[in-house]
Nucleic acid binder design. Structure first.
Length: 361
DNA sequence: CAATGGGCTCAGAATTCGCG
DNA sequence: CGCGAATTCTGAGCCCATTG
């Protein structure tokens, strides 16, 4: 039997309270930026979610299961295309799954749904969470990534399921289903905190409101900074005074203070593409496999140096790996490190003389 | 003030352009 | 298509913000 809400919260109360302190000033702004599907703003997006919720509830009241029509409505909303799962399978499996949910077994419910070939936690949690947005939230790579910095003993409290953009944390078997339960506990706790604050209680009434904010946060992390947020020295070097920055994902390098530099990156399914330099014409591409092997290599170590200096290569640093294993210029180590920190794959700190040190999460 | 290291510069190389 | 010019790319080394 999995842990209860009370046990879980008692275990992590301090951590979660501290985390709430860290995010509480921003969480409303995150929620207000929510768009899903892309371009559909908060109010309308919530309307659509609510109408899906009504359909699911109607199904359950009438049949105790979900019809293919409603199931696929949710899939089209979430993924753009309906499934090829036969009506009978959907009926039979959702009937068993939602019986589990009746007895409050969230992870058990998810386990049953993910028995269906082609249904992972991302799909399962959409069906489950939309059945009751007061108490549940969707658990996918985006929303979980919104909690990427909720870390206990150097490990993420809530693992990130793999997604299209975010690699995620690998979990075997039904790991994500178990994690879904904990994720809901965290959302529930954050909601209880929000309800105690005057400025937030109106906007955070359901568990889904927290999920919405986290999903939106994950997106905002990868979003371009506004032109007026670019520091003066970078406007000068980048000749951005009179030009608008084009669309795309811009990141800052990890360097301290004014040394941080803006660059552009495209996170794709098969790898990451980076453009940097005066006109973003210096490019480098690393495949997903190269990235995976690189992170695997450094997972063996605790903290390791960035060391992206070209003239004075730091042995054992990420720059060293770039030069000698990937056969790329070590200067790009700084850019990839920044992306991976953004994705929650690495954590960083500043050592002596602000040397950047990294650790695989 | 010296040590440091990470971003930036700039010269040469590579590629593309443009014109007949 | 060929050829010189223009533009873009690249990486070796330099520059300089930051720290103790």
């Amino acid at each position: 039997m999995s842990t209860s809400y009370e046990d879980f919260i008692n275990n992590y109360r301090d951590l979660l309270a501290e985390y709430w302190g860290k995010i509480s000033s921003e969480i409303l702004e995150w929620k207000n930026q929510y768009e899903w599907p892309k371009g559909i703003k908060l109010e309308k997006a919530i309307e659509i979610r609510n109408s899906l919720e009504i359909s699911i509830k109607k199904n359950l009241n009438t049949y105790n299961y979900i019809t293919k029509e409603v199931f696929d409505q949710v899939m089209v909303w979430g993924f753009g295309i309906p499934t090829k799962i036969p009506e009978r399978t959907i009926n039979e499996v959702t009937k068993r799954a939602f019986a589990e949910l009746q007895s409050n077994n969230i992870s058990g419910c998810a386990k049953i749904l993910t028995e269906i070939y082609g249904v992972g936690i991302s799909r399962a949690s959409k069906i489950i969470a939309l059945s009751n947005q007061d108490c549940l939230g969707i658990y996918d790579s985006r929303a979980a990534h919104g909690l990427f910095d909720l870390v206990f003993n150097d490990k993420r409290l809530i693992p990130i399921p793999p997604g299209k953009v975010i690699a995620g944390d690998y979990l075997p078997n039904y790991g994500y289903c178990e994690a879904f339960q904990k994720y809901i506990y965290v959302l529930k706790f954050l909601l209880s905190k929000a309800q105690k604050e005057d400025g937030l209680s109106n906007d955070f009434k359901r568990v889904a409101d927290v999920e919405i904010a986290l999903f939106s946060r994950s997106r905002s992390i990868l979003k371009a900074p506004k032109i007026n947020q670019i520091p003066e020295h970078l406007r000068r070097t980048r000749k951005l005074n009179n030009s608008t920055i084009e669309e795309g994902n811009y990141y800052w390098t990890l360097a301290v203070g004014n040394k941080a530099k803006l660059f552009k990156a495209e996170v794709m399914e098969n790898g990451i593409f980076i453009s940097t330099g005066e006109n973003y014409k210096s490019n480098i591409f690393l495949t997903s496999l190269e990235i995976k092997n690189c992170l695997l290599h450094f997972k063996k170590y605790n903290w390791f140096p960035l060391g992206n200096n070209i003239t004075n290569l730091t042995p054992g640093g990420l720059g060293d790996y770039f030069l000698n294993t990937l056969h790329k210029s070590p200067k790009y180590a700084g850019h990839f490190a920044a992306i991976w920190v953004n994705q929650g794959l690495l954590t960083h700190r500043y050592g002596n003389y602000n040397r950047i040190e990294l650790k695989v999460l």
